[in-house]
Design a protein around this nucleic acid. Structure first.
Lengths: 335, 335
DNA sequence: ATTTTTTGTGCAAACGGTTGCACTATTTTC
DNA sequence: GAAAATAGTGCAACCGTTTGCACAAAAAAT
């Protein structure tokens, strides 16, 4: 049925080895036989079987990409799809394929990383996943299996990762607010067990410090990313009478909620309160006032992750390293 | 280095065949040896090599998923990610993996479908892709290779596909407008070489006909999906003095633009003009007035596509068939 | 005119599994 | 108690490639 290397060999009247060598462009093959073989291949419509090749070469030219199923990021903004595009572009360029797995968050679920790694389906893994169970992480490290994480790992484990320059971006954003004359800047940050929240808080603190503004813990609100929580955060600031003249929200959704609350309180943006947030969702530009936001580059994140992984594939002994992708402050009307 | 079936065999003091049979749960193996073998497998941390298995079984338990890189749908709304989630969930349930390829739209680019199919990396293919070059399509059909398309194919080719019930949805939407007392309904449709545009136009026509409203070609505007085009379409209607009392936009983006144009013209929504559109992007609910829109179910589309593909894998002779996924009209303030 | 080197190709053993068939030991049947 | 059926396991071929090594023929060196 399927045409194999032997069929080609027969037709070209050479041995299978020779055909194989033609395929891999072995310099020892004469031009003459190359021609014959190539002709036979074309004639028969031959394509080398990837599985058989993998079996002997012990590499599949495939990288596993593990995505969380968790909704808020993947739906509210095209973060994951964009990372994926970056990975895909970079992988394609290097002749690699992508085995995608969307992990079920539920505990006790079958772990696909485990399977694809242990059964040898992939050469390396990229994880868009920070809440990774330690067990899997341990396994990867113990096996010295090449992998890269997108997003700084949670517990300081020494692994390779790529991430946005969250600290730098937050520093820049905060400085921008300060330069606009804002004195009292609140920050609505995400859950404090998320590295992204901590990093953005850190950048905020550093900027305050560098500008000799005292850090005020009352102006730090931590909440899950959602419009409602953004709204609630502002309500709360109003209630305790600590209304700032600017708000830094670590996620656009929080900002959207905050903006509503501010308007509902009869205050003006940016006149009374300036607002600035992160991620630059598409809606940001359509809000009124349009929202100043830090644009991140998920595509580039994907590219960098893949390149880093390829380095590891070539040199298994490469030490864990980080790649930080710059961000860009998009200035609009909200501050 | 890696532990193979032979190592297990040695440790359990049986032949490799026996180990293989234990793995595939062959009933002829005695409980006793099963125990021995399982113990040895655990002891050695053995996992059967997927590649080797594939080589002999001639199946990889992997399906290829081909996504277009083209931006407008994948970015403006989470359509593709959602389809992907559906595919992933369904595939996982059946112990299948996903080989994802994001195709570069550019002509002359290497065609990944071709490669993964011809080199035997996947058992079947799902294409989220309607602008498929005929060449690839032909190849798949000629090889009788199992595949399913998401979205009705463009040229009536007899292939298996899943799609939203676009005609039905449009019929329902138009009827809704009519029931609200609208007499003169314009439709802003997408490019007329896209099946989705045609189908939604078709549903619109049928609803008019069933309600004895004459179809007026002047009220049909075709434009690429974008805010700007939605704006322009309304501007144009105004200019030619054919302002309707309702607009059916086949995409939310068009509706958003249309709404702006209507407001800019000093008209009121829904009082002067009602508006209704398709796809129900997240923003729809936040607009003012909030936008009545047809919610589609991309997740289900993915699930159905995968199930259909599995049917084909089991029965290669299955005739091409379609699966139509119902939609849901979400009524809000805009009409 | 030998010997040595180079060039081009083939042989056969892997890679890590699966499976049809044969075979022995045990059980069932008559 | 011998023949037939059944149960449990192993042998060896195969899946479609790659690759180390051997080898013959041709070219180069002596």
């Amino acid at each position: 049925m399927t045409v194999t290397i032997k069929d080609v060999a027969k037709m070209a009247m050479v041995s299978p080895s020779t055909v194989s060598r033609v395929i891999s462009d072995d310099p020892r093959i004469s031009e003459e036989t190359k021609l014959k073989v190539n002709e036979a291949m074309k004639e028969l419509g031959y394509h080398p079987n990837a599985i058989a090749r993998s079996l002997v070469s012990k590499s599949t030219n495939t990288i596993g990409v593990i995505m969380p199923k968790s909704a808020h990021l993947s739906l509210a903004n095209p973060f994951f799809p964009e990372v994926l595009r970056g990975i895909s572009a970079s992988a394609n360029e290097n002749g690699f394929y992508i085995l995608l797995s969307i992990e079920d968050d539920g505990i006790g679920k079958v772990n696909t990383i485990d399977k694809i790694v242990k059964t040898g389906m992939v050469d390396g893994v990229i994880m868009l996943y920070s809440k990774l169970e330690d067990e899997t992480l341990r396994m990867l490290i113990d096996k010295n299996f090449p992998f890269v994480m997108v997003g700084k790992p949670i517990n300081g484990t020494k692994v390779s990762y790529v991430d946005n320059d969250n600290i730098g971006a937050s520093y820049e954003a905060t400085t921008h607010l300060i330069n606009k004359g804002r004195k009292s800047i609140a920050i609505i940050t995400g859950p404090l067990n998320m590295v992204v929240s901590l990093d953005r808080l850190e950048g905020y603190k550093r900027a305050l410090m560098d500008n000799r503004i005292e850090f005020n813990p009352d102006l730090v609100i931590s909440a899950e990313f959602s419009k409602e929580n953004g709204y609630g955060a502002v309500e709360n600031l109003i209630k305790i009478g600590k209304l700032p003249d600017a708000i830094l929200a670590v996620d656009d959704l929080l900002a959207v909620g905050a903006m509503e609350a501010i308007k509902d309180a009869g205050l003006k943006i940016p006149d009374d309160i300036g607002i600035l947030s992160f991620n630059n969702i598409t809606t940001a530009e359509y809000l009124s006032p349009s929202l100043t936001s830090v644009d991140i580059n998920p595509y580039e994140l994907g590219v960098e992750a893949t390149e880093l992984l390829f380095q590891k594939l070539q040199n298994k002994k490469l030490l864990p390293q980080a790649r930080i992708v710059p961000t860009k402050l998009i200035i609009r009307e909200s501050c």
